[in-house]
Simulated scan of single mutants.
Amino acid sequence: MLKINNLTKRFGGLAAVNNVSIEFEANKINAIIGPNGAGKSTFFNLVAGAMPPTEGTIEYQGMNITGMACDRIARLGIARTFQTTMLFEESTVLDNLIVGHRLRTQSRLWDVIINSRRLRDEEAKCRARAQEVLDFVGLSHIGHRITADISQEEKKRVAFALALATDPELVLLDEPAGGINPEETENLAGLIRKMVDHGVTVCLIEHKMDMIMSLADKIMVLDHGEKIAEGTPEEVRNNPVVIEAYLGSDEDAAA
């Protein structure tokens, strides 16, 4: 589904992502791990179109999307969440999700001015889709609440739902389990599995290794912007280069 070829992003003399090549299969859970500052979020920014690469190409379902605008990439079927949950805090949960499906509508300013039939139909479709994804993430009971008043774990689920409201085929999740407790983390992992079971491919960045090792089909490891390993959780767990750079050995854990 996603093919990355020699992807590089330089900021002055610093290569935040350096010559990374990787392929991610459809209907799989793909993970990116590595130390802080390894280039993981920059990698997501490049794929999602938030910034252009310095070198290399990005192919999505056989189409070259390198340097394409982020809204166009989103319409092609790539959605993204962020480390810091970005929601309209003073709006209701349901209103946050209505915004997501606007990506798939055609109404323009004139439709708003004349309150056109197309606008009314699309508003109804956006509201229906918002309710669908709210049900999917298990939050139908809080759709009426102001977003600022819900828990951090609920905000994480709303962010998932917002991404799903755009009707994506690939979702990029940036540290989805950050700031939540172990039980909530396991519940969120279950939601990620549910997404894949319903045909959405997932690529996630995460520091919680227990979650990643039990969840991912494939893992890529970045360090100082470079790919140092890729493979199954078992292969990555036992890779001496990864142990040295990031995971640490059993002896290190016991020290």
Rank of each mutant, 00 (worst) to 15 (best):
T85P: 04
G143W: 00
A124I: 03
M51V: 15
A31D: 13
I73A: 09
A48L: 05
D135V: 04
V47H: 02
R127L: 15
P35V: 08
Q106I: 04
I65P: 07
A124W: 01
N115T: 13
L76K: 14
D135A: 13
D135P: 02
H141S: 15
P35S: 12
D95W: 03
D95F: 02
A26Y: 10
R118H: 01
C126P: 02
G37Q: 09
D135Q: 08
E25L: 12
I32S: 01
T54A: 00
T84R: 08
A74T: 12
I98W: 00
L109D: 11
E122Q: 12
S116I: 12
S140A: 13
I78F: 05
A48W: 06
Q131G: 14
N45R: 07
I33F: 02
I113C: 08
G39F: 09
I73N: 07
C70S: 15
A38H: 03
D111S: 07
I114H: 10
L76R: 12
L109I: 15
S41F: 04
F43N: 12
S91Y: 14
T66A: 03
I33T: 11
N96V: 05
I29Y: 00
C126T: 08
D95G: 01
V137T: 10
R117F: 02
C70W: 05
M86W: 03
A31E: 12
R80H: 03
L87M: 09
G39T: 10
S91L: 15
F44I: 11
A69T: 01
L76G: 01
G138K: 13
R117P: 02
D111A: 13
F82M: 08
L139A: 00
L109H: 11
R117W: 02
G56V: 09
